[in-house]
Each structure stands twice: as structure tokens, then as C-alpha cells.
Simulated scan of single mutants.
Amino acid sequence: MFTAKDLKGYYLMKNNDFAYNKSYSDGYPMGAIKKLTRYDNGVVSSLYICFRFNAFVNTVFMEHYFESGLHNREIEKYAQEGARNHGLLNIGIIDFFNTKISIPNTDEQTKIANFLSSFDKKIEAEKEILIQYQSQKKYFLQNLFI
């Protein structure tokens, strides 16, 4: 929960809005684009570029698209590292919105999003099973030499 009364310098986001973090990190060499999903509203610094799609774009599809890194080549055309080498990419709002995104029609987006999301659910289930096996292995090893 955000409690500050002065929101100058911040953007108010709504559920399903996206924010582009221009800082690069492991797995995100051109920064990360993430969708607000956990909350109805959110607040981010004005250092982020925030946006939302119209009704003809499946936001779950776009989540997968951005997570895949497909958009990095487009961002690379415009982004340059700041002079201080501090990990913040220098890309303006206009340049960011001039990057191109090639997406299929809405029906195809939905099919692809559902397909990829089913893999995500399977991966999460397998991770849970792995945690249980690791816990069981730890238990057996601890009780092996009693």
C-alpha cells in the first residue's frame, strides 16, 4: 500500500497496465517490461515508461512476448547506456513507442497465450513437486545415521 500524499513524480498504474524499467539486469539486458497483475492499482517512479494496450491486444500474450525478450532487438535500436555506466538505459518515451511489435490477430494471441500459460502452470506444479522431493531427501539424509 502506498501512503504518501504527494504523488508528484510517480505514475498511477491500473491492473493490466505495463511498465518498462530501463535498468538492465540478469535476464533483462534491455530492461524489463512487466504487467501489473497482483493489485488493482500501483504506483511507479517516473523513471518507468508506463502504457496499456487497447482491446485488440491480449495482455497475457504481451506478457509472454515481453518475457521472451523478442522486443529487445527493437529497444537496442534506440537504447544507449547512460554516460555514467550505472545500468540505466537511455531511451526516450517517443523512441520507446516507435519500437515495432509484430503480433497476430486477437484470436491467435489468445490461443498462444493460453498455450504458453498452460506451460507456466505445469512448470509451477513441477517446481512444487521438486520442493517436496528435496524436503523428503533432506529428511531421509537426516535420519539415515540415527
Rank of each mutant, 00 (worst) to 15 (best):
R38M: 03
D40C: 02
I103S: 12
L47H: 08
R73N: 13
N105K: 13
E126Y: 15
Q80H: 11
M62E: 06
N54P: 09
S45E: 03
A83C: 01
I94H: 01
I131N: 12
N15H: 13
G87R: 09
K138N: 00
F145V: 08
N41Q: 09
S102E: 13
D40F: 05
N85Q: 14
N16D: 13
E63Q: 15
N114G: 03
Y65H: 10
Q134K: 14
D95S: 14
K8W: 00
G31I: 09
I131Y: 09
A125T: 12
F145W: 00
I112R: 08
I112W: 10
N41P: 00
G9E: 00
I103K: 12
L88I: 15
T3M: 00
L47G: 04
E81D: 03
I112A: 03
I103A: 14
F18N: 08
F53R: 08
N15Y: 09
A32S: 15
T106A: 07
T3Y: 08
N15P: 01
I91D: 09
K8L: 04
K121M: 10
D6I: 11
I94W: 03
Q134I: 03
R84M: 08
T106E: 09
E67S: 13
D6M: 02
S135C: 01
A4R: 11
N72V: 02
A19P: 01
F145N: 04
K100N: 13
G31E: 05
L116K: 06
G69T: 10
I33A: 07
L12C: 09
L47C: 01
M1Q: 02
K137N: 02
E74W: 07
Y20V: 09
S135F: 02
H86L: 13
S46D: 09
I112T: 07
D120W: 06
G69I: 07
Q136V: 03
N21C: 06
Y24F: 15
T37C: 08
K5W: 00
T59P: 07
D6P: 04
F2I: 03
T37I: 14
E67L: 12
K22Q: 06
N41W: 07
S68G: 04
I131M: 06
V57C: 12
F51N: 05
E126C: 07
T37W: 07
M62S: 09
Y133Q: 13
E128Y: 08
A125M: 12
V57E: 08
T106G: 01
K5V: 00
Y10L: 07
N143E: 03
F18I: 10
T106I: 15
F51T: 06
S102D: 11
L36S: 05
M1A: 03
A4D: 04
E76H: 04
K137I: 11
N90P: 04
K8M: 00
F96T: 06
K137G: 00
G42L: 03
P104C: 11
D120A: 11
G82N: 14
S23N: 13
K122E: 13
F66C: 04
A125K: 15
Q136W: 01
N15A: 09
V44D: 01
Q80R: 15
R38H: 06
F61Y: 15
F115L: 14
D6L: 04
I93V: 14
Q142H: 01
K138R: 07
